[in-house]
Computed example of a mutant assay.
Amino acid sequence: MSEIAIEAAGLRRTYRSRIGWFRPQRREVEAVRGVDLTVGNGELFGLLGPNGAGKTTTIKLLNTLLIPTAGTARICGYDVVRQTREVRRRIGYVFGGDRGLYDRLSARDNLRYFAELYGVPGREQKRRIAELLELVRLDGREHERVEGYSRGMRQRLHIARGLLHRPRVLFLDEPSIGVDPVAARELRQTVADLAAAGTTVLLTTHYMAEADELCDRIAVIAGGLIQALGTPAELRHHADGRRVLEVEAYGVNDARLSAIHTLPGVRQAGLEVVGAAQVLTVQSDAGIDVQADVLRELAGVRLGRVTARQPTLEDAYVAIVNRVEQRSAAEAVPV
């Protein structure tokens, strides 16, 4: 058996579209611009990136749902274009959201239906379904209609569906999106159990804490290219030499945020809405304390908690993505 579960070299995907009717113009968009990737057997690998970065396109290229414009990809040694059937026998695909299940059927009946589609032999179905219901912690609820399931229960059933045919590689495309914290914790435990049992898992997620907790290695994709690759600890080095200031505020506008961006020592500044409050996160050079200057710019704004802390994986991710965006903006400026 090959030690490599997933391998991609120079993987590209270009979308072609036509704009307008009277004088139509053809446009090409490179969603994936040359991805090189290697994932070992039994590895839990994370693929992170902003919306439109090429994450889902990369997943679909690897699991045979899209054909590459250029480059090659192999799953368990089989080419995704020339040996599609062999690849599909060895992969499972789970995506976030509510689609893909039959609400008026029970969990058990859903799994029986998909077991038939996946070609699971009849004599194995009962045992396999029981194993999976126990794995995803739905045993005892398997006779209930799926329409009464919570979002987290549905996602765990999605995972069970993707594992029916014992795939060697499982693609999880944002499985915890929209799931409450308790259900998300159960999902993470299920995913960790899968990897511990030897299944290769490729996970995309927007939740940095989830990636930090689960993944052996992480790739950050932005602009259709892999921009950073390593263990969570290695990726944190991208935020080395920085301090992080978090300010809970109520009413920070774009003008104040722009002013904070220009303060001496500030590398990045961003706003996130959390409930009724905003959380302002400012990354600065390690040798410069920007707290007094930031608070001065926020004069007149109602403030809550102010915290200085060490950089996290999320801070490193933001640093990587912002660096790519700044480079792209500079290249786009006409000379």
Rank of each mutant, 00 (worst) to 15 (best):
D180S: 08
E210K: 09
G54R: 06
T57V: 11
V220P: 06
L133V: 08
A219D: 12
I6K: 10
R166C: 00
D103S: 08
L111I: 14
Y113T: 14
I177A: 13
C76D: 07
A73D: 00
T72Q: 10
V81T: 15
G42L: 07
A107T: 14
A70P: 04
D109S: 09
Q227P: 02
G304R: 01
G49D: 04
V244C: 02
R327M: 12
D98W: 02
R236I: 05
V191I: 15
S2K: 06
L65R: 03
Q310G: 09
Q155R: 05
A292I: 11
Q268S: 13
Q125R: 15
V136S: 02
P181D: 01
R104G: 08
D285E: 15
D79Q: 09
E28H: 11
L303H: 05
E248I: 06
R16D: 11
T312I: 03
P24F: 05
A319E: 13
H206G: 03
T84E: 14
E124H: 11
R82S: 15
T281H: 00
D109I: 02
R161A: 01
Q268E: 15
A277F: 02
T231L: 08
A286W: 08
G152R: 10
S150L: 08
R12P: 00
L66F: 12
N63W: 07
E28L: 09
N253S: 07
R154N: 06
R185E: 13
Y78S: 05
S258Q: 14
H237R: 15
R141W: 12
G10H: 11
A195Q: 13
T58Y: 04
L65Y: 04
I159K: 01
